[in-house]
Amino acid sequence: MLMETKKLTKQFGGLTAVNDVDFTIEKGKINAIIGPNGAGKSTFFNLLSGTYTPSAGQVFYKGQDITKRPPDKIARLGVARTFQTTHLFEESTVLDNVIVGHRLRTSSNLWDAVFRTRRFKFEEKKCRDKAMEVLEFVELTHVMDEQAGSITQEEKKRVAFALALATDPEVVFLDEPTAGINPGETEGLASLMEKMVQRGITVCLIEHKMKMIMKLADKIMVLNYGEKIAEGTSEEIMNNQAVIEAYLGGGASA
Rank of each mutant, 00 (worst) to 15 (best):
L104E: 13
L104M: 11
L104N: 07
R105M: 15
R105L: 14
R105T: 02
R105C: 13
T106K: 00
T106M: 05
S107V: 15
S107H: 15
S107I: 15
S108R: 07
S108V: 05
S108Y: 00
N109Y: 05
N109E: 12
N109L: 11
N109V: 14
N109P: 10
L110S: 02
L110G: 00
W111M: 06
W111V: 08
W111S: 11
W111N: 07
D112R: 03
D112S: 01
A113T: 12
A113G: 09
A113S: 13
A113L: 06
A113D: 08
A113W: 08
V114T: 15
F115D: 06
F115G: 11
F115M: 09
R116S: 11
R116A: 12
R116D: 09
T117P: 07
T117L: 12
R118C: 03
R118T: 12
R118G: 10
R118N: 10
R118P: 05
R118H: 10
R118S: 09
R118I: 05
R119L: 10
R119K: 09
R119D: 04
R119Q: 13
F120M: 01
K121P: 02
K121W: 03
K121N: 00
K121R: 02
K121F: 00
F122L: 09
F122K: 14
F122R: 15
F122Q: 12
F122Y: 08
E123W: 11
E123A: 09
E123L: 14
E123M: 12
E124S: 05
E124L: 06
K125Q: 04
K125S: 03
K125H: 00
K125C: 00
K125P: 02
K126Q: 15
K126T: 12
K126W: 09
K126M: 14
K126P: 09
K126G: 10
C127F: 01
C127Q: 01
C127A: 06
C127E: 02
R128Q: 00
R128I: 02
R128C: 03
R128N: 02
D129F: 14
D129E: 14
D129P: 07
D129G: 04
D129K: 15
D129L: 14
K130Q: 08
K130R: 04
K130I: 07
K130C: 11
K130H: 04
A131F: 02
A131D: 07
M132N: 15
M132S: 08
M132F: 12
M132K: 15
E133F: 05
E133W: 03
E133D: 04
V134D: 04
V134E: 06
L135F: 13
L135W: 15
L135N: 11
L135A: 10
E136R: 10
F137T: 01
F137E: 00
F137C: 04
F137G: 02
V138P: 05
V138I: 05
V138N: 06
V138H: 05
E139V: 02
E139F: 03
